[in-house]
Structure formats: C-alpha cells, structure tokens
Design a protein around this nucleic acid. Structure first.
Length: 491
RNA sequence: CGGGAAGUAGCGAAGUUGGUAUCGCACCUGCUUUGGGAGCAGGGGAUCGCAGGUUCGAGUCCUGUCUUCCCGACCA
C-alpha cells in the first residue's frame, strides 16, 4: 500500500532509491549531495564498524584521529595524489562571518578573514597523516606503524546516489608504515583479505580479489588492490580498496628511518579503506521487491515477535510466552524485538518488518499457543512454517546461520550464472549488455582499456589475484594476451 | 559541470484562458476491529521549494536561485 517499491525488473535505480527511503535507512538532506543516515540505517553501519574494527584490532592496528582540514600545500606534495583529487575538493577560504550591512539580519563572509594558507576538507588523509608520521618515525624500532581512523571525508561529486556516492561519506582509512617493501605488500594483501573476509562472512557478498589497472589505480599508489562485488542488476561495485603506496608518500613528506644496519631509508606505506558504500552493496546484493533483506550478522533486529490476539486474556497469555522467548533468545545471543505496540495491527507489522529486512518473524496467536508453536516466517525465502516452542531458541540460532549462508550462496550463484567468458568483440558487447562479470583477453595497455571504456562504458574491474595464465588475443586490438581480466559496467 | 525532467499538507498527486487550493494515503478523536498494510463517523494540517518581478489579483506568467531524479563527463 503506502510503502510499495518500484520493482527491480522495471526500474532498478528507482527500486534502490525507494528501498533506501522506505526501509528507513537514509534520506536526502537539505545540503546538495549529502545524506542523513537514519537510526535504522546507522545501526547497520555500526554493526559493520564493530565487526571491521575488531578485525583491524585483531591484525594489530590501533585507532587514531587526524584533522578534517588539510593545508592546501600538503596536498600538492605528492604529484599523482594532487592530480587525482584536485578536481573534487571542498576548500575553506575564510574563517569568519559577519552581519551583512546591506541586508539586515543576514550574514556575509567577512572579507577580512581570508586564510593565507587555504584549508582543504579531507578527501582522504594520506597527506596530513604522512606529515604527522614524519615526527613519529625515526628508527626501525618505530615500525611497523599500524593506524586506522574512522572518519568522514568529502569528495565534491557531480552526481550522487544515497550510500553509493555522496559528497560527504563515512569510512575508515588505514595508514601503515613499514621498514621493507615486502612487509608493506604483505600488509596491503592482508587487509584486502580482511575486507574479502568481511564482505563474504558478514555482508554475505561474494567478492573477487584483484589488482586495478593503471587507469583505475588510486592517485599516489604504486598498486591498488580491490574487492569487486556484483549487484543484482549485473553491474559491478568496488566494495573496498587496499593500496601499496611504495615510498611515494615517504619521499613526498620526507619520512625516513634508520635501519638495524644503520642505513637511512624512506619507509614503505599502505593505505586501505571501506566506506558507507558497503551499505549500497548490502542493499543491492540481497534485497527484493518486498524490501530490504539483511544478513543476520548485520541485522539490528534478527528476530521480531508479533502478537496476534482478540481478547485481553489471549494478549496476556501471548505476552507471557513472548517474554520467555525473548529471554531465551537473548541468552543465545540473538537480538530480538517483541513488538507489542497496540497502535498497529499485525498485518501492518508484517509488511513493515519485511520492508526493513528483519531475517526472522515469529507470529504468536491463540492458535499457536494451542499448538505449542509459533508461525515462523523467513525473510530471505518468504517461507512460513509452524515451529514448536520446544527447542525454538536452538532452531532460531541454527536458522539465522542458515539464512546467512543462503544469502551468500544465492549471491554467489547469481555471480556464477551471469559470468561470461568471451573471445570476440561481438560476444563481449553482447555479454556486457546482459550484465555480470565478463572475462576477456586484453593486451595490457591503457590505450586499449580507454578505448573499450569509450565504446562500451565498461571498465576493467580488476585483474584477479592468482589469475590463471592463458594465451589469447585482445578482444579489441587482437594483440597477444597472457590472461583474461574482469570487465563490467560499474557503479 | 553540460543536456533533459521535476518540486503544491508527512507521502503521492490534481489544479482549465491568472480570481486566493482539491483528492487519496498518513495524522488526531470516537466506536467497532485485530492470523497479511482494518471499517465507519467526525476533525486538524499548505504563507504552492526559496527570492524578486509583472498584475487590481500569481500555484498558474517572467527572472534568478536551491534541491532531487534521468542521461553524459568525473569519481569510492
């Protein structure tokens, strides 16, 4: 009724927007390109943060916090980095307002408050962090330095979409410093593994781990690793990146250390990040035309109990039973909500929790009490079954795990089913139009990649790690190639 | 930032050649209801995105501006 969505098949983009709004995840703000993340959406993000934060800590990292503002002069120091971000920076040029003498009650920028060194609102923090690290690192004993920060960043995007691309977004950025090139590369790959682990085991989103081509590489990086996910409409989404920065930033910010052998050398660096874009990946991987579908591990509410009754006697009996269930579920670590609001009827609640993606719904009414059972509805399959109270909490724990697995399996099957291996240009174009990852030979040049992008809007998502070698010819140039790379149209 | 579309009550929409705003849902009250978004009756809520202008009179015409959506260029 009031909350219907556009269908995925008719208008995928509209479906996505409707869903974000109607599942109460986020809304547009009064500020162009910026969103308000609503409590329900934010609680999902908090669960992601908690899981990732633990993974970072478990791999030896500590959190810290660096300034929102970066002096413009810092951003200029690493050439590639400067070029990459120059076009999308918000710049603070003044530090004060004053009453506008020509418009009573209005404010104006005080021209006397002009900053001599303008400040950039961070689009990423490499520069301020490497400026800081210079003071922290003198010896090999100070290494490795393993820092993460949770922060907001601003990139002045021309075209925005809730969660997928907004002017301001939330993320974490890890910045590490190492004594050797090898150690930095190990770190880069380790954090990519953390991201892949998180994507697959928490988001239930299968990802391809790979390396970006030069065209797609992070500005200032020597090598960019990524995890690429496939959305239901057949488009790819970069879900996380991990960069081997070489000595680029160490040289730009003059960060040297004395080795055990007494030699002075620049340190080796990595940076890695995932953002609230993961919310978009989560939404577009599992949800359906009835609304959001959440993997149990990230669902703010895993089980909702909806009472159904006519008389107050029935109501009281249900409350008694429901409270027992809540207690036993919580004892098993299951997050459960008993929705005893009398302001909404059961049917309304069913629809509402479906829209919000709650993995399991239990309906309890007089008929169930009589049978000693509940009506259990699974959000992922929309199946309904009567399940006895006896042993219910164990069944729930098991079922949550089953749902988590099912979402992953389903997403993986979709990715596998839509994957194409092509050899000719005609096949390539046809495959792109169908959607999904397209494995094709490429001659390895940026020029060819660029031409393919211009002709088809598809990009090389990545060169998969441990990619099997296979002789072939480039789909566009016909030149020899030693491996297939992954193409797709992307978000 | 270029091209297109849109903005009227919380949401979705109607509004004729300019004459002071209508409908559905939602909301509030009451009664009846409650196993898939309840029914009936009554009620409240809009300076028509914002700022100017034309006019006796502007939701409607003109100018500017903000925001959103779609398509491009750019990007997580």
């Amino acid at each position: 009724m009031a909350k219907e969505l556009a269908s995925r098949s008719e208008d995928y983009a509209q479906w996505y927007q409707d869903l974000v709004i109607k599942a109460d995840l986020a809304e547009h703000s009064a500020v162009k390109g910026c969103m308000v993340i609503k409590p329900y959406g934010y609680s999902i993000w908090e669960k992601m943060q908690a899981a990732l934060d633990k993974m970072f800590k478990d791999t030896g990292h500590s959190n810290a916090y660096f300034p929102l503002f970066i002096p413009k002069s810092f951003l200029e120091l690493e050439e590639g980095h400067a070029e990459g971000f120059a076009k999308e920076c918000a710049v603070v040029t003044h530090y004060r307002l004053k009453a506008d003498p020509s418009r009573p009650g209005k404010l104006m920028v005080d021209p006397d408050s002009k900053l001599t060194d303008e400040l950039i609102v961070r689009p990423t923090s490499e520069t301020i962090i490497w400026n800081t690290y210079k003071g922290w690192i003198q010896s090999y004993r100070d290494l490795p330095l393993l820092i993460n920060q949770w922060a907001n960043v601003v990139r002045w995007e021309m075209r925005t979409r809730l969660f997928l691309r907004t002017t301001e977004f939330l993320w974490q950025e890890g910045h590490t410093a190492h004594a050797t090139r090898e150690e930095a590369i190990i770190e880069t790959e380790k954090m990519l593994d953390v991201y892949a682990d998180f994507a697959e085991n928490w988001l239930a989103v299968p990802v391809i781990k790979g390396i970006k081509t030069a065209n797609e590489r992070f500005a200032g990086a020597v090598e960019t690793y990524c995890i690429e996910a496939l959305m239901q409409d057949g488009k790819a989404l970069q879900a996380g990146t991990s960069h081997f920065l070489g000595q680029n930033f160490a040289k730009a910010f003059d960060v040297k250390f004395t080795s055990k052998e007494g030699k002075l050398d620049y340190v080796w660096a990595t940076s890695w990040g995932v953002s609230t874009r993961l919310m978009g990946a989560l939404i577009m991987s599992h949800s359906d035309d009835n609304g959001l579908v959440l993997p149990p591990k990230l669902a703010p509410i895993q089980v909702v109990i909806v009472p159904i009754f006519k008389t107050e006697e029935e109501h009281q009996a249900i409350i008694a039973r429901a409270e027992e269930l809540v207690k036993s579920f919580r004892a098993k670590g299951v997050s459960v909500k008993f929705d005893d609001r009398d302001t909404h009827r059961p049917g309304w609640k069913f629809a509402e929790y479906e829209m919000r993606g709650v993995p399991i719904r239990l309906g309890i009414g007089p008929k169930d009490l009589e049978k000693g059972a509940v009506e259990l509805a699974r959000r992922d399959t929309m199946e309904k079954n009567s399940v006895p109270f006896d042993g219910l909490e164990d069944r729930i724990v098991q079922l949550l795990d089953e749902i988590q697995q099912n979402l992953y399996t389903r997403a993986l099957a979709r990715r596998t089913d839509t994957a194409h291996h092509v050899t000719t240009w005609a096949e390539f174009e046809a495959a792109l139009d169908k959607g999904g990852f397209v494995y094709a030979h490429w001659d390895g040049t940026s020029e060819t990649e660029q031409r393919i992008k211009e002709k088809t809007k598809a990009t090389i998502r990545c060169i998969p790690l441990h990619n099997p070698k296979e002789d072939g010819v480039c789909i566009l140039s016909g030149k020899p190639s030693t491996q297939r790379v992954v193409f797709a149209r992307a978000y």
